[in-house]
């Protein structure tokens, strides 16, 4: 099991191995936030247990439109920083339409972070086959630090969820997850996601979640038959 480290804990004495979640002072590497220590010969990382979503270029996010302007939309991406989606980055926009006819306040979207400038001005794009406005389904919010576990190693967790229940899932890096499909199945996945969030730093999670889903699927079928 990985060790929990607190900020300021010494994690390495060779500054070359310093990775994510660490800082270097006088050649020594310290943890910079609360997290789990992930250490090997080439790199030392601290995997955060808590914290806000800080956008990086290339991230897939789920957002909610907060403001419509003449040049685009301001989108809340569950982060300290609001994002901007320019008109030209939304393929649904045509010059004969008004921006609010394409996306209005409160509309949810799946978008990709195009760029984050040094002042943390975030630009989004929807020119991607994964991106589209959300009109159906459900959005589930979790702690952004737990997103990697919902995805699993090389997508193993998310693949398992999709295969077991045959619903659409898009995991935003910002901790918002879009689910679409049969309402009962969505409810099962929602519960499973909360379970993953709760037990994010335990071993053998994928197997336990698979078991949980099989059990819940059985419950639902038993109910419909009776």
């Amino acid at each position: 099991m990985r060790k929990i480290v607190l900020p300021g804990d010494l994690v390495a004495t060779n500054s070359k191995v310093a990775g994510q979640g660490t800082y270097v002072e006088n050649g020594k590497v310290y943890a910079k936030y609360l997290g789990l220590l992930d250490k090997d010969e080439t790199q030392v990382r601290v995997i955060p247990l808590k914290g806000k979503y800080i956008p990086t270029a290339g991230d897939m996010v789920v957002g909610i439109t907060k403001e419509v302007t003449a040049n685009g939309w301001f989108v809340n991406i569950n982060s300290p920083y609001q994002a901007f989606l320019p008109l030209m980055e939304n393929p649904e926009y045509k010059s004969n339409k008004k921006p609010n006819e394409v996306l209005d306040i409160g509309d949810a979207i799946i978008a990709r972070v195009l760029n984050v400038d040094p002042n943390m001005k975030v630009t989004l794009t929807m020119k991607d086959k994964m991106c589209h406005p959300i009109r159906l389904g459900r959005i589930v919010a979790i702690n952004p630090a737990r997103v990697p576990r919902v995805i699993g190693k090389k997508g193993s967790m998310i693949k398992m969820l999709k295969n077991e229940l045959g619903i659409q899932i898009v995991v935003g890096q910002n901790g918002l997850i879009w689910l679409n499909g049969d309402a009962k199945k969505i409810s099962i996945v929602e519960e499973a996601i909360y379970m993953i969030e709760e037990e994010a730093h335990t071993e053998g999670l994928t197997d336990r979640v698979a078991e949980f889903i099989k059990r819940r699927k059985g419950d639902v079928e038993a109910k419909t038959n009776s």
Binding site: L6, P7, E25, K32, L49, K50, G51
Partner: peptide, 11 residues
């Protein structure tokens, strides 16, 4: 602060 996951130099 540590519980919030905010990066700090130490305690």
């Amino acid at each position: 602060l540590i519980d919030a996951g905010i990066p700090v130099k130490g305690i």
